[in-house]
Amino acid sequence: MLRMSFKALALTLGIFAAAPAHAAGEAIPIPDRKFSFDGIFGTYDRASAQRGFQVYKEVCAACHGLRLLSYRNLRDLGLTEAQVAAIASQFEIKDGPNDEGQMFERPGRPADRFRSPFPNDAAARAANNGALPPDLSVMTKARAGGADYLFALLTGYVDPPPGVTVMDGMHYNKYFPGNQIAMGPVLNPDQVEYADGTKATVEQMAHDVSTFLQWAAEPELEQRRALGVKIIIFLTILAGLTYAVKRKIWADVEH
């Protein structure tokens, strides 16, 4: 994985010998999952991300918000303007005040932010036994391991090892730091019906929603990498030229 190769590079340079310790808790190492966006030239698998959006919308969105995204952002996933408008209009968005000074609800528009499932954190806690379902907008950037971690978490529900008592209302997950997580195993086989006929296994849904959330957190990723390749090629040529000029200039000096 890219991150690992950079770590190796950094270590050899000896500059970042102590590069940031990613808080891992005591959870076991997160397995590397193969995603379309891995590596330097990776891009988002649009079909997978669209399916992931469906999983988010039909499963995750009951508790988790995506407040930094707008419906219009879905255009990036390959949806048409009409599809985005249709999706947005399924949600009732709070607006106002109107001429009578009252807040009112109206169908969503593409420019609206994703509607959060709860009006505020207190309401979210009240509805979830005191646990706060975190907003997922930048989730892959906010967890060590990123999308790998999300996938591992969503597929990491197992029976607790002998001797471990799981607290009331909690669930055992081998990848969650501390292992006891308030979120239950929400993905079940065929929980959603994919329009493209893909079989909705737990693994498939977890993979798709991880791809979707990676895109949600880093929508600029493809553009960033494409630009980066161009700039580095440019700089490499410029470095060669500059070095040649430097050698020419210094050619008549003994040093």
Partner: peptide, 13 residues
């Protein structure tokens, strides 16, 4: 371009 968050800490997101 390729590891913008490598030197940062995930918790700051």
């Amino acid at each position: 371009f390729f590891a913008p968050n490598y030197l940062g800490h995930p918790d700051n997101y």
